[in-house]
Design a binder for these strands. Structure first.
Lengths: 198, 198
DNA sequence: GTCTATACGTGGATAGAC
DNA sequence: GTCTATCCACGTATAGAC
């Protein structure tokens, strides 16, 4: 305690302030366009401190997007309830994450992946091995179709992110999450368990 | 290997060479990351010539993405055949464009839109006013739903672009177009004419 | 028309003072 | 720990020589 009067004790948590500013900057502008100087200004610290705490820009980036959620523990609950309505549940879970502060990390990764090969690779591998594979692996479908089904789900969810957060096309950009769940859930459901040949 | 080729009339078409290199660079890296120097090198000309022919970088960009296709004359054929199978036809037309050299211009616009506000706005307005509006305006649905249906179509198609060309998730990245038409067409069809409440 | 040279700005990174 | 000062690379853009 004893913190109340007198001097500012320097800074309570410079590191956290930098991290928060970095997350916002990367999410808003992507890896290349976000600058350490801007991040430092936003965090009200000196640019040199950013290097002091995090090393290079790339290390800072990895710290900001260090996956704050673990699909391995999140997905089972979504999938366990069985194939019925799994599409809706996936979209709902997805939107809950992306509408939360945690989503900014994902947005940073996505924005960076578009213009930067190594972040694109980071994102692709995370999606394929950590998310898509888990989603389709216990499905009662032809195993040869699983990769395609996973990719199709990714395509719809990636497009949702793009239209809601990046290009911002109304009314998707401003829609209530549940509204989107009922509109898009069936699409995901079909990609997972439906007939893809017609 | 010497670069002879006999005839060397200075340069047959410097302007076109620059434009082609610029399109490729913008498509691959986006507006901010693509540099005039790189473009000039790729076109085997001096950087100063780029300015000489096109003025600023922004003007060069606009020249490269000057929409080479006109939805106003392309869409009627797709829509005229009636609501049945319009989803498949849309996806097919879409993929034909994006798999062609013309698609590079679109990719340049998309990649740039992600990290650059004014190109995002350019893309959004083109999509909403030139494409989506036309697609939904003659649909036999509740007019209040048209914007949502258009946005949903955009979400699926944007996601298709992202997974096929940007993040490159297999097998979508390498799939035969017709394969994707049968898989994704029904989704677009439902967004356009189906029941969105369940 | 084409290239050289350069002005001017931005951004990552580091050394060293306090 | 925090900041000042600085180095260096790169990018846009322009002026002017050939």
């Amino acid at each position: 305690m004893a913190r109340r009067t007198g001097r500012r004790p320097g800074r309570p948590d410079t590191r956290a302030a930098i991290l928060a500013a970095a997350r916002a900057a990367f999410a808003e502008r992507g890896f290349d366009a976000a600058s350490i100087r801007t991040i430092a200004t936003a965090a009200a610290v000196d640019p040199a401190l950013v290097h002091h705490y995090f090393g290079t820009k790339e290390e800072l980036f990895r710290a900001t997007v260090a996956i704050p959620i673990d699909p391995a523990e999140l997905l089972p609950a979504v999938l366990a309830a069985g194939p019925d309505g799994v599409g809706e549940r996936l979209v709902r879970t997805f939107l809950t994450i992306w509408d939360s502060p945690v989503g900014t990390a994902g947005l940073a990764l996505l924005r960076s992946a578009v213009n930067n090969e190594w972040t694109a690779r980071l994102l692709r591998e995370f999606l394929v091995t950590q998310v898509l594979r888990r989603v389709v692996e216990h499905l009662d479908v032809d195993p040869a179709e699983r990769a395609l089904r996973g990719a199709l789900v990714a395509s719809q969810l990636a497009g949702l992110i793009m239209t809601r957060y990046v290009i911002r096309i109304d009314p998707i950009a401003t829609a209530d999450p549940e509204h989107l769940v009922t509109a898009i859930g069936p699409t995901v459901q079909r990609y997972l368990t439906g007939d893809l040949t017609g």
